[in-house]
Design a protein around this nucleic acid. Sequence first.
DNA 1: TATAAAAGTTAGACAAGCAAAACAAAAGTA
DNA 2: TACTTTTGTTTTGCTTGTCTAACTTTTATA
Lengths: 223, 223
Amino acid sequence: MLSFTEENYLKALLKINLESGQAEVGTNELASMLSLRPATVNDMIKKLREKKLVNYERYGKITLTRDGKKRAIEVLRKHRLWETFLYEKLSFTWDEVHEVAEQLEHIQSAKLVDRIDELLGFPEFDPHGDVIPNAKGEIKTRIQKTLDEIEPGKSCKMVAVKDNSTPFLQYVVKVGLGISSKIKVVSKQAYDANLVIEVKGVKHTVSQKFAQNIFVVTEIKAS
Amino acid sequence: MLSFTEENYLKALLKINLESGQAEVGTNELASMLSLRPATVNDMIKKLREKKLVNYERYGKITLTRDGKKRAIEVLRKHRLWETFLYEKLSFTWDEVHEVAEQLEHIQSAKLVDRIDELLGFPEFDPHGDVIPNAKGEIKTRIQKTLDEIEPGKSCKMVAVKDNSTPFLQYVVKVGLGISSKIKVVSKQAYDANLVIEVKGVKHTVSQKFAQNIFVVTEIKAS
DNA sequence: TATAAAAGTTAGACAAGCAAAACAAAAGTA
DNA sequence: TACTTTTGTTTTGCTTGTCTAACTTTTATA
């Protein structure tokens, strides 16, 4: 049985893997992801190594073992299913779900997770557009870019957000965006990479930082 | 913000209060309720006293303060709402709900509890027949006896169980009992207080221990 | 009422989880 | 190559929650 804390370390490692594509993670990187000191992380990584959940050697990089990855996926699955539950069944707003799901993801009961999954009709995506790993631990991948990578003149569809913080999400809503929104990149300011985008016929100017936190796909299918 | 452990101590104190009617609790009694050593409980009670959640002095008895009781009721409310949710919405069985609710009761989100309450239609009783405190912290009381207090020849209605353990609950089901079951006490063995009871026309012999864990009411209303 | 049993307390220990400060290694750069 | 910055490690120490073992107070009873 893993502790609350151990589960969070594994989840953070998996998230770095998924978001950056790199399997190897440094102590400092992980520490900053978890808002902890590198010293703290170094201690815990040694414990996780003892439990065969990560591969690691002195001054080396951290990778998840097969078992560690499996555990991490379970936590991520629970997190995203709970978010979906809160959003779909309890009318929580987009920006409220994350905080509560952070707690709910540590509840130990395979039956509970599977029943919630069933109640929700086995959803593939959570309210932020992120993929929910299925009961077998499989994670679908999607060819997605961030909004700032789209060339001016092209259109795309928003599929997910990178940042889950309340201020960001509330801003997203204010700009008229949500999962599946169609976005046209009108122009890009060369100086600071500010973007002018068009959403539902309305133009907005957003920063590069904002655009880097919006995931989009470019093949817009006729619906 | 109270820790997981502190909440469990408060809940245990409240449960002793509700089940025995006595407001004063001893260190050993609490320790046995929590399956901990008296020394451990003694330490923690001092911490809870510092936080003004319990009244206590050396060699004296423990009582909940107004604030302590309020917190304890919140935990109990969450526990019983989650049990009801698992039973009603996720098809958990009677004996499965307790364990998972022990974890869920510590989730910190007032909104979550209230929404679950709403989703369930503001239930008054949990699957074990226990009263669910309402959002204001009020606990309805019911004039109930244990089955072993019923005189032979009389009938009664089962309203709750005292023991939440899986073996007990599975045994209850096996005897054909559930919340609202009508029970006739046919006879009582003077030697060991074994009871012969009749449920749905079938006679069963049950021990005094069993009967002490079944709560009943005697005024059977026409339904 | 003396004494044994029950109930409660204290002291000392340990493990988990965290962090500050000092140190060591690796990488980048002039 | 030498110096500096970044990255990683170790040491030491705090806090929380638990335990065992030894001790003290209260209570029940012979």
